[in-house]
């Protein structure tokens, strides 16, 4: 069980409610090279079973992150996945280098849903080759024992192709999905509800899209570990992702509703697995892909798919 990037603050806020060291990992918001003030307000609009946001990667920049945020997590022994965001391949690489000798980085997650300044603002995640380029250079700049996770968006023609490019580029795991782009217009003010116009949609409204993405990628690349996310609010939702092929699940917007969501969902998921006779989560990963009667897959096969 992980937190989704950008939904858990610095870790300190959630620590008021539960022990962040008990998380599978705490995923930071996407860290950028320079401090970023983000987008103007309103940044948020509630939609049916979801939420549009346009925060714009507000954050203190990597230097302040390394002196003020990461040490706090590291001191407590929280497993920390540092999400990074940039506008150019060089910026991602520089971020990865800056993190390489920082203690307490469990993994690096590459947020590919950032506009590529060198490609007229087209987001990296939409283009397999630029996504692969980012992943490869981050992989090269990161310590060999720190996994690199590529975070994908659902707003692409062929998510399997982008996923494959990222794995070819050296991604050790994939996280999906980032928020699809949405919009809402306030009919009273007759203006877009968000100052930025469009925003990323999250919450249960996007879960079917997210499950579909996990399903397709797991089917095509069964050996690649997938972190599934998008609208997980309960143990049942988490199990849905696991059965579709995710070996870990992240919780985002649900934290806004229930600050205890992570430990609760973890507990619910464990109960559901026990009820269904699974000894380990790994035994349920991708199970929905197999026709009924074929039974759980053999151990050897499993070890491979949950690397």
């Amino acid at each position: 069980m992980l937190t989704a990037s950008g939904c858990g603050g610095t870790g300190r806020e959630l620590a008021q409610f539960f022990d962040v060291t008990r998380l599978g990992a705490f995923v930071t918001r996407s860290i950028t090279m320079a401090p970023r003030a983000g987008r103007p307000t309103p940044r948020m609009a509630e939609t049916p079973s979801g939420l549009l946001n346009a925060v714009g990667l507000q954050g203190p920049g990597v230097e302040a992150f390394l002196t003020q945020e990461l040490p706090w997590l590291a001191e407590r022994g929280a497993r920390t996945v540092v999400s990074i965001g940039g506008g150019t391949v060089a910026e991602y690489t520089a971020l990865a280098r800056r993190l390489a000798d920082a203690p307490g980085v469990t993994a690096v997650e590459v947020n590919l849903s950032c506009p590529n300044i060198e490609d007229r603002g087209r987001v990296f995640a939409r283009d397999g080759s630029s996504a692969a380029e980012v992943v490869a250079s981050v992989r090269a700049a990161t310590r060999y024992d720190v996994p690199v996770i590529a975070k994908l968006a659902s707003d692409v023609a062929d998510i399997v192709a982008v996923a494959r490019s990222c794995v070819d580029g050296g991604a050790d795991a994939l996280a999906m999905i980032n928020t699809p782009v949405g919009m809402s217009v306030d009919v009273d003010s007759m203006r877009p509800a968000l100052a930025a116009g469009t925003g990323g949609l999250s919450g249960p409204a996007i879960r079917p899209i997210a499950v579909r993405c996990v399903w397709q990628v797991h089917a095509a690349l069964p050996g690649v570990p997938i972190i599934g996310m998008g609208g997980v609010t309960s143990g049942r939702d988490a199990l849905e992702f696991v059965l579709a092929g995710a070996c870990a699940v992240a919780v985002g917007s649900a934290l806004f509703h229930d600050p205890y969501a992570c430990p609760r969902i973890q507990r619910e998921l464990e109960e559901l697995l026990t009820e269904r006779g699974f000894d380990r989560l790994a035994d349920a990963v991708g199970l929905a892909h197999h026709p009924p009667g074929s039974g759980p897959r053999g151990r050897t096969d499993l070890e491979e798919s949950s690397l």
Binding site: C7, G9, G38, T41, P42
Partner: peptide, 14 residues
């Protein structure tokens, strides 16, 4: 300010 979480994690209320 319009808020989504109230606990400081979402950065929408700035």
């Amino acid at each position: 300010e319009a808020m989504a979480c109230g606990i400081g994690v979402c950065m929408t209320c700035v």
